[in-house]
């Protein structure tokens, strides 16, 4: 009812428009305003029903379940990926802690080994040193002894030479043969001679 009124009003306006637009208005003469031309209703409704019906079928059967599935899959994938990532992270943290612990233990071991080696080396050097020192002391003592004996031997030789020289001097001066034993006795008692020899 109201539509009919609007329609006729528009038709009247369309009529007016055709009067104004002399040339271009010819197309309207039969029906007036196109959206209200009743002969246009049936074909539009027919095709609307066909096309919209097909579109509804395609959307409800194919498109919407598919898109809904995509979104759901993505949600599930993100959730599972996040879970996996969280698990990996805790694993990595545990591994890092284990590694730290291992490192600490190894360092302690290394320090202990170093300490041991140091002690061993110190003991070894001390032993070697005492051996070397005692050997050296032995050698020094032997050398000292050799020197002393050589000195004594040399002294003994000097006394004999001096006694023979004294005998020879006495013979030359007196012409008498002097017994060697008396000279050696004299010599032993003569302090001056001893001092002279010591001065050598």
């Amino acid at each position: 009812m109201s539509m009919a009124i609007i329609s006729s009003a528009f038709a009247a306006e369309g009529e007016q428009a055709t009067h104004e637009t002399v040339g271009a208005g010819e197309a309207h003469h039969e029906g007036g305003f196109p959206p209200f031309q009743t002969e246009n209703f049936a074909p539009q409704i027919f095709w609307l029903v066909v096309i919209f019906g097909l579109l509804y079928a395609l959307m409800s059967r194919i498109a919407l379940p598919r898109v809904g599935g995509i979104i759901e899959n993505r949600g599930a994938k993100i959730a599972s990926d996040l879970g996996a990532a969280r698990e990996m992270q805790s694993k990595a943290q545990a591994a890092a802690a284990a590694n730290d612990e291992n490192l600490r233990r190894r360092r302690e071991e290394a320090q202990a080994i170093g300490r041991d080696a140091q002690h061993k080396i110190a003991a070894e050097t001390a032993k070697q040193r005492t051996i070397a020192e005692s050997q050296a002391a032995e050698k020094i003592r032997a050398a000292d002894e050799r020197i002393a004996s050589a000195k004594a031997k040399a002294l003994a030789n000097v006394e004999q030479i001096a006694e023979e020289a004294a005998a020879a001097i006495v013979e030359k001066l007196t012409g008498a043969k002097v017994d060697m034993s008396t000279i050696s006795e004299n010599h032993a008692t003569s302090s001056t001679a001893k001092e002279t020899l010591n001065a050598f």
């Binding site: 074909p43 539009q44 027919f46 095709w47 096309i51 919209f52 395609l58 194919i62 498109a63 919407l64």
Partner: peptide
């Protein structure tokens, strides 16, 4: 006896529906 002509309006209904199908399917 009912007119069911394919019109320019039907053509663009079809295009709109095809647009939706292209986007969604």
């Amino acid at each position: 006896g009912i007119e069911t002509s394919f019109t320019n309006a039907s053509l663009f209904m079809l295009l709109a529906a095809l647009g939706v199908v292209a986007l969604m399917i």
